[in-house]
Design a protein around this nucleic acid. Sequence first.
RNA 1: GGAGAGUUGGCAGAGUGGUAAUGCAACGGACUCGAAAUCCGUCGAACCGGUUCAUACCGGCGCGCAGGUUCAAAUCCUGUACUCUCCUCCA
Length: 433
Amino acid sequence: MLDIKKMRQDPDYFKKRLAQRGTDPVDLNKIFQLDDKRRELIKDTEELKAKRNEVSKQIGAAKRNKESADDAIAEMQAVGDEISNIDKELGKINHEFQVRMAHLPNMPHEGIPVGPDEDSNEEFKKVGTIPTFSFEPKAHWDIAEDLGILDFERGAKVSGARFVYYVGLGAQLERAVYNFMLDEHMAEGYTEILPPYLVNDKTMYGTGQFPKFKEDVYQINNEDQELTLIPTAEVPLTNFFADEVIPSEDLPVYVTALTPSFRSEAGSAGRDTRGLIRMHQFNKVEMVKFAKPADSYMELEKMTANAESILQKLGLAYHVIKLSTGDMGFSAAETNDVEVWMPEQNIYREISSCSNTQDFQARRAHIQYRDENGKLQYVHTLNGSGLAVGRTVAAILENCQNEDGTVTIPEVLVPYFHGITKITKENAVPFKK
RNA sequence: GGAGAGUUGGCAGAGUGGUAAUGCAACGGACUCGAAAUCCGUCGAACCGGUUCAUACCGGCGCGCAGGUUCAAAUCCUGUACUCUCCUCCA
């Protein structure tokens, strides 16, 4: 949620910057109109309420003295009607104002690339050596199905498209990868959390998924209760401190969690239909930070480095790009995407997205701290994947494949993989005799 | 799932229709070499609107939340969330 007071001070700047993310300036004009009307009505009703409070006090005094107050009461009846009329209209205006405000995306941070879509993103870092193969590298789904460690057919049988079974060393590899990631983040000062996977609407609103992006999620209706399957651990992690004041000596707070993420992928029909890249359910290790405003951009760089460090230790090539105004998510002010090299397609694929939302989510979820003067301020919240686990497994399978169809396990994962160094047809699925 | 109790300021805690006692804490001052104790004073979150460069001041709102009744609601009515206790069930 943006700050209407700041918007009022420089409407043209807000119009210009939000237009760069695709918001029609007409929407802003409507909001400013509503804000004017709103404040006018507030002034009117508050004046009447002040009068009513005044006279009611006199009525009270008169009654105590056993004097008649009938005239004043009659007068206040009329005032009361007027108040309730104005309040009714104010309620409508306010509601529309709030709804429109809630649909406005965050302001882009100064200095990030300006452009309508992903073509304007800027690569600013390239790390690792892109592997070369003496044979034609296979896609991870072919490698995995040949080994029997991923079963997309049975996933479809039991749940539908974009669901999968990990089997044997496939399941163990997934577990090795996320345990490795969690340990790495803990060493960097993150506190591990195991959050709820079902959250209420208020929580979804707090991080900015609602009201605008309801079609992207799975919802559960159980009698009178409506809950949403989390599309990312960012939602329960960021809302951990919702409606709270974080003691300033605790800042910055770093938390991390492994959770499944559930996404309906409405609108992605036909994209990435094979493999682990785009599933309705996938595991992700998420990092979330609560920071003082002055530190938040330094924290964003550190968080991006935490995500990168996982790939470095796994020996995977990647690059980092700064998302343009047109490609950023709704709540973000600035976003770094980390993309890992996928040999079969010969492209980098997103494996982490690290964002600073500044006070955008904190305003929605009411997450504050006290500054040096004891005044309440909104914290800045950051979130980033560290990393998408399924996509990491896919990247390992493709980058570490051998000509004979086996997969060599990155050294750092071996201790997390019961000492196994290679997935072969023989050890992949223990029940296969 | 059933029954009961509760939710008031940073904390404790009164308040059954007349506009939020009191105590602690906090802040300022006096006393003191300084501190403690004591005394005096200030302060009732956050939020919203207005005047102001700002400090500040005025007003609204404010007793879990949302409605309702009333000239007036912490107080009465309806709904609802959460916490606690007991019973029941359960991995």
